[in-house]
Design a protein around this nucleic acid. Sequence first.
DNA 1: GCGAGCCACAACCATTGGTTGGGCACTCCT
DNA 2: AGGAGTGCCCAACCAATGGTTGTGGCTCGC
Lengths: 329, 329
Amino acid sequence: MVGHSYDVPVDTEALRSFVRAAELGRLRQAADELGMTQQGVSKRIAALERALEVRLFTRTARGVELTLDGQAFLPHARSIVAGVERAVAAVRPGSRALRIDVLGLRSAQAVVLHDYWRSHPETDLDVVTLRVSDPRVAVAAVETGDIDASFRTVTDPAVLPADVRMIPAFDSPLELLVGPGHPLASARRLTPTELRKHRIWVPGIEPGSEWAEFYDQLATDFDLRIDAAGPHFGDEVLLDTLADSSDVATLVGARDRYIWPPTHDLRRIPVENPTLAYPLSLILPRTNPHPGLRRVVAHLGSLAGLPEPVWLPSWATEQRRGHTASRSR
Amino acid sequence: MVGHSYDVPVDTEALRSFVRAAELGRLRQAADELGMTQQGVSKRIAALERALEVRLFTRTARGVELTLDGQAFLPHARSIVAGVERAVAAVRPGSRALRIDVLGLRSAQAVVLHDYWRSHPETDLDVVTLRVSDPRVAVAAVETGDIDASFRTVTDPAVLPADVRMIPAFDSPLELLVGPGHPLASARRLTPTELRKHRIWVPGIEPGSEWAEFYDQLATDFDLRIDAAGPHFGDEVLLDTLADSSDVATLVGARDRYIWPPTHDLRRIPVENPTLAYPLSLILPRTNPHPGLRRVVAHLGSLAGLPEPVWLPSWATEQRRGHTASRSR
DNA sequence: GCGAGCCACAACCATTGGTTGGGCACTCCT
DNA sequence: AGGAGTGCCCAACCAATGGTTGTGGCTCGC
């Protein structure tokens, strides 16, 4: 009785013919538009009907008319045809969809991009992950045009090639993520100094990366115990550990989309006064950027600011002075 | 420079293989799952890559790995495969998607169904139009199972076969639709008696249909001039006429999705005290209704009521007494 | 260094998906 | 009423597609 998914081979070209024939009501006209013979279209549609085991058209003396099944099928067929168009556009060299690299599909970067896409659903936007930690690889990918932009940061702008630039994207505020047994679990809000003496575990940070530098400065400036060493065994392990522990906490981006089982009962606690924020940057080509990128950048600029005061690592404040200076020239 | 839609033939079976191979990272495993040889999958994917003119995988000694293009393409491929599943499910006899007949795709009925789908996007729901005015055809279609339910009304419940029943769906309030030059154009709200002496034109009503009866009773009860005769040349003609006329108005359902050019400047004016409402019914099989239908009916029951008092045609009030009585037995 | 595992290439073949040609059903016009 | 016109389906045919088997090259681990 269960309708397991039958593997019906469906030819997208047949769907295209079906859609056109349904719209025109004539196989002949559809055939002309598609550059083939009327018999060809007839056979295609007959094959479709055979595969689906339903009649899609009633044949009349002056054309074809959709049956009920055909009516029900048509919007699905349209959506598939459109999906194929989009899929092809996504990889078509030269004029392909806007492609942006993010660190992870659950990261704040991806969430912001998803928000952008929801408010501009007409954009063909593809979010990919390079799966490399070295930002220079991302820079190279932007330079060659494999990707249109990347949410990475190079702390030393001198390493950027002439044709690549980096602009501030948005500042991602951090929250403390703790299990129910942690002493800070019931706090509604925390200041950085209140995190002192508590062990903060942020696994998976590559030594020498900009994230390592970020947590380094953070630990120094507020005298925190941040343990950013050790391998990362996946979010599940991290979340499991947090849920069971009464003394380990971690820092996550406020917009990061972490998902944990309801039994874990983890809590996210905003940190303010100052708000701790990681300054996300966007690396993009200086010349001939993808046309869709402009609007994404504009969207990033329109994002709401953070509760003042905001703490940022030193390289961010330095670069922004430079950025503003170069803009004011 | 414009990227017109290249007609790249895309084989859905190849997409299926690609998705599976990308998930498993092994052509061999994907081939086993799909019940074919490794070489077959290899050829399918090679064909895809040839058609798209991009490499989707990098081949390594221990499997395949997505390229950037592959990553960008994967979600699209998934969506197409899922679309095919849904499309097949929409017409698969026996266990097909929930199929409901409405009078028109812009009608209040369709709008309500669309709202339902937006809040329950997991339902496979197909909205079709039988394109016949005779409600008995709809009843027959429900009886044979061609459709799962129909938003029609039979004023005489005796004509229903034993296995088909009719339940109240929701009451659709009417609004006056007038052009800018009409004397009532600036009213914020109207009562039925204020419509007296004004010419109301409702084209396309079939004589003898329940709609004819409705407008008949309406005209009698409030002494209105309702002209329900004459053919309907399409909504565009109706809207054009209204926009230009200073003495013709029409009645439309408050939820009907009429679309007119902005230059027309038509106004919709609610009618209250009493609210005029058309009682929509749902015709559905008494035994073995489609499993998804239950939730749609529940949703209909949860719709907000209308501003009291409400005027309904006599048959509705009669049937509801009967309906309530039979329920209380 | 060699076997195991994985993918690509080549040769082969059934099936598919298109073509042309012909026929039947219905409509419309005279 | 009959014939021209239109529209779709069926049959025969044929190239190209999409699968198979067999083989070879590559990388990794022992």
